[in-house]
Design a protein around this nucleic acid. Structure first.
Lengths: 246, 246
DNA sequence: CGAATAGTGTCTTTTAGACAATATCGG
DNA sequence: CCGATATTGTCTAAAAGACACTATTCG
């Protein structure tokens, strides 16, 4: 920790990216965690991530780690910066800043073994939230969850969780799983189909194993959702406990 | 740029914080800029900021720079992380990551000379946006403006621009200046006073030079604004051009 | 009183919330 | 037909937008 301070105030430090990767599978929100293979925190669960390399931009580093850990082409996912964490003692090896990213994607096949990813697996977030994670990764996970929940309200990112084409019910289940309470199917449909460029009908439909066929849609061009999707004024009917912000 | 990559992937890098400090004065949004006193970009305008020190957390560093540059106790301001910028060539001196912060405060007295702040001054944002700024600071400024505009919609941060106690009209003028178009005084009042814990009446009032006295309010406890303050569906009546996101 | 700013009331349109009713599939 | 899911329609309540009107100060 006590590295020398250069005359100009510069302090050598390491910079990493860590990824909160969410997906919806089996009617639950899951996060990708790895089991650390080396100290510190060897054997503990952690968010995937790694050092930013010399010629690399932050987004590039995040995309590279994504590919290495999950074998996934990150360009198909929603990826955004969450926040940077830099508490002096957060890494016992020395001063390390980590730029946390939030990645959202459709039900990703069980993470194929990439470089370090042999031990990567999808964990339901409610399980992950009551686990011990390495470093300050539990805080990061909580912030990622809060951010994802908030972004569903006023953006169209929910569609990032759906493989295209998708049905309105698919999209609704994303909201229900992430917010933790049911939404009225009728009102939800009206809302989503009337918002400009949230979803575009393909004209096709898909017949489920049982029940009436559902019309299929693709993502529209809109990034922002207007008017926003209201999350009930008083969050009284929450079903799963919320994560507090750090 | 071509510093050696250590065996473990660690790359020594410098980490700075840069501040986008907004205030409302003279019916216009202003940002604090400094004139750089040393290379690189000597003599050019830049956002205030500096290196994160050895034992320091990121928020601490931001608060310290705030105090040094403006002589202001940052605990009275709204302060939040914006995003971290780390393009490999963004600083000609070598690999440098900067954690950008957004600070919002009431009309701050003209920045008193602190440490480096002799050359600090408030610049109207529309002027700053059409200036050349050092490093990637123009991008950072644009993102700060976008963030501030967006946050007025669904949070109560607008009150951070008002010295307490304030009138409803004071608060409305914050929205008008930052969004760039007028709001209906009547509907604005109804909205703000009915939203839970946005503002709390003090019971006092303030008589302007001319006109009816206005009731005074303080900030309430709410951080989020529900329902949100709607920014017109189609942003047709914009008055000043918006900044594109980088 | 008139100018100027603050604050209230009201009417219409839009959106949200609850929920009944109908449609279309596989057995 | 029945069970299950999708989709449409309807009614009510809440919120937004437009704007007329009243209130209180100073000079």
């Amino acid at each position: 920790m006590n590295r020398a301070l250069k005359h100009d105030g510069t302090m050598p430090a390491a910079v990493t990216v860590d990824l909160v990767i969410f997906t919806v599978r089996a009617a639950a929100l899951h996060v990708l965690l790895i089991e650390r293979g080396m100290p510190p925190f060897e054997g503990e669960l952690a968010l995937p991530g790694g050092y930013v390399r010399a010629g690399e931009d932050l987004d590039q580093a995040a995309l590279r780690e994504l590919a290495e850990e999950t074998g996934i082409n990150g360009h198909e996912l929603h990826l955004e910066q969450l926040r940077t964490f830099g508490a002096p003692e957060r890494d016992p090896r020395g001063r390390t800043f980590t730029v946390a990213y939030l990645a959202l994607g459709p039900d990703l096949p069980t993470p194929v073994a990439g470089t370090d990813a042999a031990t990567a697996c999808w964990v339901p977030v409610d399980v992950a939230l009551s686990s011990e994670l390495a470093f300050d990764h539990l805080i990061i996970l909580k912030e990622g969850l809060d951010r994802a929940r908030a972004k569903l309200e006023y953006t169209t990112v929910a569609a990032a969780f759906c493989r295209q084409p998708f049905t309105i019910a698919d999209l609704r289940r994303v909201y229900e799983v992430i917010w933790g309470f049911p939404l009225d199917p009728s009102n939800f449909r009206r809302k989503v189909t009337k918002a400009a460029h949230f979803v575009e009908p393909t004209g096709e439909s898909r017949t489920p194993e049982i029940g009436r066929p559902a019309a299929l849609y693709r993502r529209g061009s809109a990034e922002l959702l207007f008017p926003p999707m209201p999350r009930s004024a008083d969050g009284e009917h929450e079903v799963q406990p919320s994560a507090a912000t750090g």
